[in-house]
C-alpha cells in the first residue's frame, strides 16, 4: 500500500476548512495527532491521497465523512461531572440570574439533550442538591431527552460502570449510589426525579411540547450536525426557552458556527448563550 503523506500546505488547508466548519482550530503542535487521524480516514475511505480525500470531504452532499472525521478528532465520551465548569456556572451564576428575574414561583425548568445514558442529567441533579442554596426555595424540573430509546432505557435504569463514575468525589458516590454487580446503581430518589423522554429534535411538531425552559444543556451534539440541522436545532432551542433563558454548549462547540439567535454571555465560570429578552 502506498504511503500517505500530509504536506504542510495540506495540513493548513485542512486546518482552515475544519476551523470554519466545526470551530476547532488545531495548532501546529497538534500536527501529529491530526495527520495520524487524517491518514487513517484516507485509508479507510479508499481515497488515493489527501487531495482526493479533501475533495470528497468538502463536496460530499451528505456530510457523512465530515461527521466521521469529527468523531475521530474529538473525544465523545460521557461520564459523571464531565465539563464540570458548566455545572459550577449553573449553580454560581445562571440560576441566580434566573431566579432574580422570575416573576412567579413556578419551577425552574432544565432540559438536557441529548440525554445519552443519563450521566449529565443526574450530574446536574447532584450538583444542584450539593451546591445550590436555592434548592430550599425553588422547585426544579429536569427533563432529559434522546432520539435513541435504548439510551433512554439505560438512563432510566441508572446503572453505571466504575469508569463512568470515576470523576465523582467519593463522598458523592457513597451518598447517591450503591455498588451493584460490576458497577454502581444510582439511588431511587434521583432516578425518579428526572423525566426521560424520547424525541427527535428535527421534528418541529413533536418539539412544540417542549417549552418554557430556563436552561438547556446541549453538549457535544450540534458539532456533529450539518448546517441545516444546526439551524433547525437552534430554532427549536429558541422556542423552547423562556425569554432570557440560557443554552450551554459543549467545551469545543460555539454558537458562532450554529446560529445568530442567541447572545453571548460571560460568567466567571463559563461562556454561555442567552435568548434575548422581550424588551429588545
Amino acid at each position: 500500500m502506498k504511503k500517505i503523506i500530509i504536506s504542510e500546505d495540506d495540513f493548513q488547508k485542512f486546518r482552515e476548512f475544519f476551523y470554519r466548519k466545526v470551530g476547532i482550530s488545531f495548532e501546529n503542535d497538534k500536527r501529529y495527532f491530526v495527520d495520524k487521524r487524517l491518514i487513517e480516514r484516507i485509508e479507510l475511505t479508499g481515497a488515493n491521497d489527501f487531495r482526493d480525500y479533501f475533495i470528497m470531504l468538502r463536496f460530499e452532499a451528505s456530510g457523512q465523512e465530515l461527521q466521521q472525521l469529527i468523531n475521530v478528532m474529538t473525544i465523545n465520551e460521557t461520564y459523571f461531572f464531565r465539563e464540570e465548569y458548566q455545572f459550577k456556572c449553573l449553580v454560581n451564576s445562571i440560576l441566580d440570574e434566573i431566579t432574580r428575574n422570575k416573576k412567579d414561583t413556578s419551577p425552574i425548568r432544565i432540559w438536557c439533550v441529548p440525554s445519552s445514558s443519563g450521566e449529565e442529567a443526574y450530574s446536574i441533579a447532584i450538583y444542584l442538591l450539593e451546591h445550590w442554596p436555592g434548592m430550599t426555595k425553588w422547585d426544579v424540573e429536569i427533563i432529559s431527552s434522546d432520539i435513541d430509546s435504548v439510551m433512554i432505557e439505560r438512563a432510566q435504569r441508572g446503572h453505571y460502570s466504575s469508569r463512568s463514575v470515576q470523576y465523582l468525589p467519593a463522598t458523592l458516590l457513597t451518598k447517591y449510589f450503591k455498588p451493584s454487580g460490576d458497577g454502581y446503581q444510582i439511588c431511587e430518589d434521583l432516578r425518579s426525579s428526572i423525566e426521560f423522554t424520547c424525541v427527535n429534535l428535527m421534528d418541529s411538531v413533536e418539539m412544540r411540547a417542549y417549552r418554557k425552559f430556563d436552561v438547556i444543556f446541549c453538549r457535544n451534539l450540534l458539532i456533529y450536525f450539518d448546517d441545516l440541522s444546526r439551524r433547525l436545532a437552534a430554532e427549536t432551542f429558541f422556542d423552547a426557552l423562556n425569554p432570557n433563558g440560557f443554552v450551554c454548549l459543549g467545551y469545543s462547540e460555539s454558537m458562532s458556527r450554529i446560529s445568530s439567535l442567541f447572545r453571548v454571555r460571560k460568567f466567571p465560570e463559563a461562556i454561555v448563550y442567552q435568548k434575548p429578552g422581550v424588551d429588545l
Binding site: 470551530g23 482550530s25 460555539s254 458562532s256 453571548v264
Partner: peptide, 13 residues
C-alpha cells in the same frame, strides 16, 4: 483570529 462576530466576542471575553 475569529471567523465572525460571535467568535470575536467569545475571544474578547
Amino acid at each position: 483570529e475569529a471567523i465572525n462576530g460571535i467568535e470575536a466576542l467569545e475571544k474578547i471575553m
